[in-house]
């Protein structure tokens, strides 16, 4: 990672952090009214992965997708408007938090069903390869999805057809409300794909620099046509599974410890140490992100509600 890349990743991470914190408040005031899963703590993975993708590389995600969508390039006002259910939203207010799509930036789908989009990434990768393109597909999923049959089926098919797919598992140690140990005796997701010969790595997801380097290495092979790869990023979900989750099944991380682990602050410290940016620059990035979020909220509030006509007219495509 060089200084320009670090500044860009830091900017994306602050944009996600500011967005997610604002969405949490809007949820509590019911301006964002639906089921919301925040990715606070996971910004480093979204930013370092999507920051190395092109617009025409495809991304799929799951229920905790806000960060991936913003990192892939979706405009923040339209993303916020979608969460507020407005016509001006990415999906005209018809999809909401769990179903964000932004075709212009390659964000083709997100699902509320754990593991549901993993095979879709294979199909988009196949389509690209059949067209002779060197684009790749990336699918983000949590460690809970790994125990679903769709994961094993998709790993097998991706390896069999040597598809240009990067499987990015954000392992936050909790599958919804249960620790990983309650769901599987396998600790490392990256250990699971060895029989298929898929390159795999586990990285500290709180360290955006490490994610950048490891994902970049895997991405180069996938883009070169060497078949799929898997990256497991160990992260911490600061918020509950969903906004409103009483979160009684785990012990909260102490504030001082979180200061150490927080991926955004950590990249700030690293950047300052390595001279990638100075404190004023970092502060400016942070402030710009918060201002951008306020502008997005203002824009979204002005956007009208979708009209009832859409309820039937969108059931079928053309």
């Amino acid at each position: 990672m060089n200084a320009d890349q670090a500044r860009s990743v830091l900017r994306t991470m602050w944009r996600i952090r500011a967005f997610e914190e604002r969405v949490g408040r809007l949820k509590r005031s019911d301006e964002v009214h639906g089921l919301i899963h925040l990715s606070i703590g996971g910004e480093g993975v979204a930013a370092a992965v999507c920051g190395q993708l092109r617009d025409n590389d495809v991304v799929y995600s799951g229920h905790r997708a806000h960060g991936h969508v913003l990192a892939k390039g979706a405009p923040m006002p339209e993303t916020m408007a979608e969460l507020m259910g407005r016509e001006g939203g990415l999906c005209r207010g018809m999809g909401g938090s769990m179903h964000l799509v932004d075709v212009a930036h390659g964000m083709l789908g997100a699902t509320g069903v754990v593991g549901g989009t993993v095979p879709a990434a294979l199909g988009s990768a196949l389509a690209a390869r059949m067209r002779g393109e060197d684009t790749v597909s990336v699918v983000f999923f949590g460690d809970g999805a790994v125990q679903a049959g769709t994961f094993a089926e998709s790993v097998n098919l991706a390896a069999l057809w040597r598809l240009p797919v990067v499987l990015v598992c954000e392992n936050n140690g909790f599958a919804e409300f249960s620790p990983r140990s309650a769901h599987t005796p396998v600790e490392r997701v990256s250990d699971l794909v060895a029989p298929w010969g898929i390159p795999a790595a586990t990285v500290d997801g709180n360290d955006a620099v490490a994610v950048w380097e490891e994902f970049g290495r895997l991405l180069a092979g996938v883009r070169a046509g060497e078949g799929p790869a898997l990256l497991e990023a160990l992260t911490h979900r600061l918020r509950g599974h969903y906004e409103g989750d009483p979160d009684r099944y785990r012990v909260a991380v102490a504030a001082e410890e979180w200061q150490e682990r927080d991926p955004v602050l950590r990249l700030e410290r690293t950047g300052l140490e390595r001279g990638w940016f100075d404190a004023d620059e970092a502060k400016a990035v942070r402030e710009a992100a918060h201002a951008e979020v306020e502008d997005a909220v203002a824009w979204a509030r002005e956007s009208p509600w979708p009209t009832p006509e859409l309820a039937s007219s969108l059931v079928y495509g053309s």
């Binding site: 095979p119 879709a120 199909g123 389509a127 089926e153 097998n156």
Partner: peptide, 27 residues
């Protein structure tokens, strides 16, 4: 390339086809 045998993995098979459809194919 266009006529592909799939494993007995209906979820991956149909989900993969849906992803190909989103990316411009007509499986």
């Amino acid at each position: 390339d266009r006529v592909r045998v799939t494993p007995i993995s209906e979820t991956a098979e149909i989900g993969m086809a849906a992803g190909a459809a989103l990316a411009g194919k007509r499986p």
